[in-house]
Amino acid sequence: MGYLLRRLRGRHVLPFVLLLTVAGCKWVVLSPSGDIAAQQRDLLIISTVLMLLVIIPVLFLTVFFAWKYRQANREARYDPDWDHSTQLELVIWGAPLLIIIWLGALTWMGTHLLDPYRPIERIDSDTPVAAGTEPLEIEAVALDWKWLFIYPQYGVATVNEIAAPVDRPIRFRLTSSTVMNAFFIPALAGQIYAMPGMETKLHAVINEPGEFGGFSSNYSGAGYSGMKFEFHGVDSQAFDQWIAKVRGGEGTLDRAAYLELEKPSENAPVRYFGATDPSLFDDVVSMCVEPGKLCLRDIHGPHGSAQAAEAHGGEGHHSWAPPDALEYDKTTRRGGPMDAHGTNEAAMDHGSEEEH
């Protein structure tokens, strides 16, 4: 009896487990609700079908030749002197070449038309973006381990929740507070990275109302698995009501509130801020929210570090700013990892630099 159960588990239970696993999957990538994601879905399907035009015949012919020319088949034609067929060579080389050319053309067009930095030109396949339409701007900051969203046009901010009107273009501006992360709403558009000290962009549109999941798709530490948020696709009236609800939130997201919010936390709840500092996002990108920090935009301005040096009344390498103003490693400043002797490694490196 025990032997029979072991046989059943090995041969019959596994297919049912696989079937249940597949049945429980959400095929949101193949059934998106945004036009950009839909176009990316089409590229995925077309590319897969084109590759299967080669793969399926090869798999079929592998089985066919193995069966036809098996040792027991005495009626199979034996032709040891055959070594060339022009027609067969044309098929073997011509078909893959045409597929590669087709795939290359699709890739080139998709790379340019679906560039995340490129403003969208259509709401869907039948509706172009009307002239003069103002996109909804959302500034997204990847924190440890949560997402901060700022609506500069409305002066509000949220944590782990966003909303957007259906059929209105959206322009995301993204950055990170500490380490590289990735922003991904499968129903809306493809993922894009968010990096500290840099700004990336993503343009998209949601075409159907509903609640859609978003998450971090790049490992960023202990609380990475909890970096999830809800994206609400709503009509214009419901969006105005949502903005009004956010305006009744916790108060103003100023520099002090941001620095408190920035501290690492896992599985953070949804939070609303009824007002924001208009320059906060730009300061996050320039890594100078904290008092006394030199903004990267001043260091890397039109005239480089010379501009910053002149602004601070000094000359020479780093002579125009105190060392602390140029220290951007948040982990170190929060008492980061220590070496085997219990000394902060980054602090030792900093001290060595000062000696030189």
Rank of each mutant, 00 (worst) to 15 (best):
A105N: 03
I36Q: 13
E121A: 12
E75C: 02
S236Q: 10
G110T: 01
E345V: 11
A340W: 08
P80G: 11
P278Y: 06
F172C: 05
E290D: 09
L103S: 10
G233I: 07
Y3T: 14
A222I: 13
Q153E: 15
R74H: 04
S225H: 07
K146L: 02
W67F: 11
A157E: 01
L326I: 05
P209V: 03
T21C: 09
K26S: 15
F239L: 03
G301N: 00
I206C: 12
D167Q: 10
M348L: 12
F184S: 10
D349I: 12
Y328W: 12
V156Y: 03
T178H: 14
T276M: 04
S47I: 02
I36G: 04
Y78A: 13
G197W: 05
Q71D: 14
E310G: 04
L261Y: 12
A164T: 10
I162C: 08
G214P: 07
T127I: 05
A189W: 06
L296G: 15
S305P: 06
M51W: 09
V179F: 09
A244C: 02
E345Y: 11
F64G: 01
V246A: 07
L61T: 13
E355H: 12
Q191N: 14
V28I: 15
A308E: 01
W145K: 00
V234A: 08
A38D: 08
I99S: 06
I36F: 07
E134R: 09
P165T: 06
T158D: 09
T200A: 11
P15G: 06
D79G: 04
D324R: 07
V285I: 13
H12P: 02
L5D: 07
A163D: 12
Q237K: 11
G336W: 01
A37R: 01
A257C: 01
P196I: 06
H84L: 12
I46R: 03
S216C: 15
L43C: 04
L61M: 14
H318V: 04
I36P: 00
G190N: 08
V49C: 12
I120K: 00
W320M: 02
I46F: 03
G274E: 07
Q71H: 12
L174E: 08
W102S: 15
L88K: 12
G313T: 04
P169D: 09
L43T: 05
I45K: 01
A308Y: 06
N207V: 08
C25G: 01
A187G: 06
H341A: 14
L61I: 10
A140W: 01
E121H: 03
S319C: 09
M109P: 00
D79Q: 13
L188Q: 12
N160T: 01
K263H: 10
W102D: 01
F64N: 03
T343E: 14
G301D: 00
A163H: 11
Y258P: 07
D126R: 09
A76W: 02
W147D: 06
L294Y: 02
H232L: 14
F212R: 08
D240N: 13
S279T: 10
I100P: 03
F273Q: 03
V17R: 11
L90A: 14
A238S: 15
D329C: 05
G351R: 13
S319I: 01
P165A: 05
P96L: 10
L20W: 08
V270N: 00
D282F: 06
L114R: 00
V58Y: 08
A72T: 11
A256Q: 15
G233S: 15
I185Q: 00
A194L: 07
D298Y: 00
P186K: 06
I46M: 06
L53W: 10
E199P: 06
H300T: 00
E260F: 02
D79F: 11
